[in-house]
Amino acid sequence: TYREIKAPTVVISGDRDKVVYAAIHSAGLERDIPGAELVWVHNLGHKPDWIAPGLVVDAIEKVSGAPIDLQAMAKAVEGRIAGDAQGAGRCAELKVPDAELAPG
């Protein structure tokens, strides 16, 4: 089970992810893995490694023992992607995701 995971764990997720649900996946992992850190990025979709590769690298460094403030890094990413509508309104098949994907 997830509760048996002992490795340092960082979960990066965002409120525009249309693939996984926060309550089950990102917030669920933070809840179920002892000591896990959830890094929540507003306006981030399903590919944090593509949109915020620096944040992902910093998360890897943090679980390796580096003293990195991932929450501050997430705020910087939020500022950079704040105006990105991810195609909503420009491409017929892309809509703004439902808010229930975000953690409560």
Results as ranks from 00 to 15, higher is better:
Y2K: 10
R3A: 15
R3W: 07
E4V: 09
E4T: 10
I5K: 04
K6R: 14
A7S: 10
A7G: 02
A7D: 02
P8H: 01
P8Q: 11
T9K: 04
T9L: 00
V11C: 05
V11N: 06
I12M: 10
I12S: 07
S13Q: 08
S13H: 15
D15I: 05
D15L: 07
R16P: 00
R16F: 15
D17T: 01
K18W: 15
V19D: 03
V19Q: 13
V20W: 08
V20A: 12
A22T: 14
A27P: 02
A27Y: 04
A27K: 09
E30A: 15
E30V: 10
E30W: 03
D32N: 14
G35I: 01
A36Y: 12
A36R: 09
E37L: 13
E37N: 04
L38C: 05
L38F: 02
V39D: 04
V39S: 03
W40I: 01
W40V: 02
W40M: 11
W40P: 00
W40K: 13
H42I: 12
N43W: 15
N43Q: 15
N43D: 11
N43T: 14
L44T: 14
L44M: 15
L44V: 13
L44F: 09
H46Q: 13
H46L: 09
K47S: 13
P48W: 06
W50N: 08
I51A: 08
I51N: 00
A52V: 05
A52I: 04
A52W: 00
G54H: 05
G54A: 12
G54L: 05
L55Y: 07
L55E: 11
V56S: 10
V57Q: 03
V57Y: 04
D58V: 01
I60T: 03
I60F: 07
E61L: 06
K62C: 00
K62L: 00
K62I: 00
K62W: 03
A66C: 03
A66H: 07
P67D: 08
I68G: 06
D69V: 00
L70T: 03
A72M: 08
M73Q: 07
M73N: 10
A74N: 02
K75I: 03
V77T: 06
I81K: 06
I81R: 07
G83S: 13
G83M: 04
D84L: 08
Q86P: 00
Q86H: 11
G87T: 12
A88T: 12
G89R: 05
G89K: 05
R90T: 04
C91S: 12
C91H: 15
C91W: 14
A92C: 07
E93N: 13
E93V: 14
E93P: 11
K95M: 09
V96E: 15
V96T: 15
P97L: 08
A99D: 04
E100H: 08
L101S: 05
A102H: 02
A102L: 05
G104Y: 06
G104F: 09
G104N: 11
